[in-house]
C-alpha cells in the first residue's frame, strides 16, 4: 500500500505527499459539502427568515424569532415530547429485541441460514408498506389485533388507533417490529468477533450461562450495542413515514412528531422559515445525542466508525 501511494505521488511531481492526500480527499469532501453541509447551512439560513409561500413579497430577516415562537408553540412542544418518548421507547426495545434475535441466530441449528434471511424481511419492506400493514392490523372492523384479542366476538372489537395512548404504542410496536432486525444484524456482527476460547475457558472455570453472558458477552458487545443504539436513535429522531401513513399525527396530536410537524409547516402551510427552524432543532438534538454516544464508545471502536 505504502509503495503504491509513493509511486502514485511521483506522478504529481513537485507536490508534497500531504497535498496529494488532500487531493485524494477532495472528491469525498466536495460530496459531503454539497450534499450535507450546504443543505444544513441553508436550512439554518432559512430558519432566520420569515418566508411564507402564500404571502410572497414579505420575506424578511427575523433572526431568532422563529426559534422563540417555536418555544411558545404548544403543538411543537407536544411533538417534541412525543418524539423523545418515541426515541426512548423504540430504541431501548429495538436494541433489547435485537440482542435476543442476535443471540438466537448466532447459535448453530438446522436452517440457521433461512432464519437469518427471514429475520431481515421486516427491515427490507418499504416503511410505507409496513405502516399500511400495521394500520390494517389495528383496524377496528377487520384488524388482526382485534381477532387475536377478541376472536369472533365482533361486538368487542375496538378502534385501537382512536385511543391517543394506544395509537402511540402501536407506532412504537410497528417501529420495533420493523427495525429490531437491523439492530440484530449489527449485534450479530459484534457477537461473531468474540473468540470462542473465552467461553471455553469460562466453562472450564465453572461459570454459569448467566455469568458467561454478563461477564463476557455483554462487556465485549458494548461497542456493537452502542453503535446499534446510535443508529437507531438517529433514525428514531427522524421518524416520519410511520406517522404519515398510520395516524397523520392523530388522534388529537398524540402521535405528532417533530419531523411530521415540520413537514406540515413547510409542505402544507408553506412556512419555510418556521419549518426550517424545526429541522435545525431536530438536527441539533440528533447531533448532540450522537456525539454523546460516540464519546461513550471505546477508542478502538470510535476510530472504526
Amino acid at each position: 500500500m505504502k509503495t503504491f501511494i509513493t509511486k502514485k505521488a511521483h506522478l504529481f511531481a513537485g507536490h508534497s505527499e500531504a497535498a496529494f492526500g488532500l487531493g485524494l480527499l477532495a472528491p469525498a469532501f466536495v460530496c459531503v459539502a454539497v450534499f450535507a453541509f450546504y443543505p444544513i447551512l441553508y436550512s439554518f439560513y432559512l430558519s432566520l427568515q420569515r418566508i411564507i409561500l402564500s404571502l410572497p413579497g414579505r420575506e424578511r430577516f427575523v433572526l431568532f424569532e422563529n426559534y422563540r415562537a417555536l418555544l411558545q408553540d404548544a403543538a411543537a412542544r407536544e411533538a417534541l415530547a412525543n418524539t423523545l418518548a418515541f426515541v426512548a421507547a423504540s430504541t431501548i426495545l429495538e436494541v433489547a429485541a435485537g440482542l435476543g434475535i442476535a443471540l438466537i441466530i448466532n447459535r448453530h441449528f438446522r436452517g440457521r441460514g433461512l432464519v437469518r434471511a427471514a429475520v431481515l424481511i421486516p427491515w427490507a419492506l418499504p416503511t410505507v408498506v409496513a405502516a399500511q400493514m400495521w394500520r390494517f392490523i389495528m383496524n377496528d372492523n377487520y384488524g388482526l389485533a382485534n381477532l387475536i384479542a377478541f376472536g369472533a366476538d365482533t361486538g368487542q372489537y375496538r378502534a385501537w388507533l382512536a385511543e391517543p395512548m394506544i395509537a402511540f404504542v402501536s407506532l412504537v410496536a410497528a417501529d420495533v417490529w420493523k427495525t429490531s432486525c437491523f439492530a440484530a444484524l449489527i449485534i450479530l456482527a459484534g457477537l461473531q468477533t468474540i473468540p470462542d476460547e473465552l467461553y471455553e475457558a469460562a466453562a472450564i472455570d465453572g461459570a454459569t450461562a448467566w455469568q458467561r453472558f454478563s461477564r463476557i458477552t455483554l462487556p465485549l458487545l458494548r461497542p456493537a450495542l452502542l453503535i446499534a443504539l446510535l443508529f437507531r436513535t438517529m433514525d428514531a429522531f427522524r421518524i416520519f413515514d410511520l406517522v404519515f401513513v398510520m395516524t397523520q399525527g392523530g388522534p388529537g396530536g398524540s402521535t405528532s412528531v417533530l419531523q411530521f410537524y415540520g413537514y406540515q409547516k413547510i409542505f402544507s402551510e408553506g412556512l419555510m422559515g418556521y419549518g426550517s427552524a424545526i429541522s435545525v432543532v431536530v438536527f441539533c438534538v440528533t447531533l448532540a445525542v450522537s456525539v454523546l454516544y460516540i464519546k461513550m464508545l471505546p477508542g478502538a471502536a470510535r476510530r472504526g466508525i
Binding site: 391517543p164 399525527g249 392523530g250 388522534p251 388529537g252 396530536g253 405528532s256
Partner: peptide
C-alpha cells in the same frame, strides 16, 4: 388538532 383532542380524549 383542537377538534381531535377534545373528541378523542
Amino acid at each position: 388538532r383542537y377538534f381531535s383532542r377534545v373528541l378523542a380524549d
